[in-house]
Nucleic acid binder design. Structure first.
Length: 279
DNA sequence: TGCCAGGCGGCGT
DNA sequence: ACGCCGCATGGC
């Protein structure tokens, strides 16, 4: 067992998990969280002035990168506060421990196809059953968990299977995308593209529109010049920014112009603030 | 119960 | 390019 100990000022495990970027985590006793990603697992928590990550020996580098620990978030928070926008300052004061995780591209793509027009508890449930039914069983800390399915496993079942676990009309999207990637389509080669081109490329996939593409560029490729607009952010834009743009694409463009390469971080602070309350 | 959820594809204009 | 509609399911 390895333990990563990291200054907790800009790393709140709880806040990082509760801003909608990740779905495979559960509560554990003692205000801890069990986090699964790809085929790995860790127990994470804050205690005193520090955040702790307990993982298997050999996974330290993976989780150091996963939690984006090489990045200086004080500089990001400073930029956000210097904008002088009240709701932003409030959001970042409340959520300065939010980090953007470096997650697996494939896992993000399938997870956010599942997420469309869906609610977070249900998204978590569906992804959990995908892993249980199609993922490889592992154990960590004496407890069983399941890896995110390989694309081979995802492609090995038919659309009816996906309907049977509650995916509804998204079943066809998952199946089509699984087949495509299993037949050789590579997400990794897309890394060479600019964020704009990357988004356009992702949107060609069945079931991937502007919002899902923005989530994949932000959470899977760590492109912070992305600003996903979902129903929460849309409400916030009209209520708290007195926005006048008429559709979600325009809202995205508004925020990108305002916040440039910091857009993705700001989106997370705002989403966290809006969904978890201002208290 | 009815509205809503980290929207998208298809279609008409 | 833009707007509208149907869509599966279940959380609350």
């Amino acid at each position: 067992m390895a333990i990563i100990k990291f200054n907790g000022e800009y790393f709140s495990v709880k806040d990082t998990l509760n801003c909608g970027q990740v779905f495979r985590f559960t509560d554990a006793p003692g205000d801890k969280f069990i986090i699964c990603t790809t085929d790995k697992c860790a127990v994470c928590y804050n205690k005193g002035d520090y955040a702790y990550i307990e993982c298997n020996d050999g996974d330290e580098d993976y989780f150091f990168n996963y939690f984006d620990l090489e990045r200086d978030y004080s500089q990001i928070v400073c930029y956000v506060q210097q904008k002088g926008i009240k709701i932003l300052s409030d959001a970042v004061t409340k959520g300065k421990g939010v980090r953007i995780l470096n997650q697996d591209k494939t896992e993000m793509l399938f997870s956010f196809i599942v997420s469309q027009n869906n609610n977070i508890p249900r998204i978590k449930k569906i992804i959990d059953s995908l892993c249980k039914k199609l993922g490889k069983k592992h154990s960590f800390n004496g407890q069983d968990y399941y890896a995110f399915p390989t694309v081979q496993a995802l492609a090995s079942v038919d659309e009816d299977f996906y309907k049977s676990i509650g995916l509804g009309y998204r079943a066809g999207y998952i199946k089509a995308t699984a087949d495509l990637i299993n037949n050789g389509y590579s997400l990794e080669v897309l890394t060479a593209l600019s964020t704009k081109d990357l988004k356009e490329e992702l949107k060609k996939l069945h079931g991937v529109g502007p919002k899902v593409a923005d989530c994949v560029t932000l959470f899977g490729f760590h492109r912070a010049d992305s600003f996903p607009v979902d129903t929460w952010i849309e409400k916030l834009y009209y209520q708290d920014f007195s926005g006048t743009a008429k559709n979600r694409n325009h809202i995205t463009n508004y925020f990108l112009q305002e916040f440039g390469d910091y857009s993705g971080y700001i989106q997370q602070y705002l989403f966290h603030y809006k969904r978890n309350g201002a208290d």
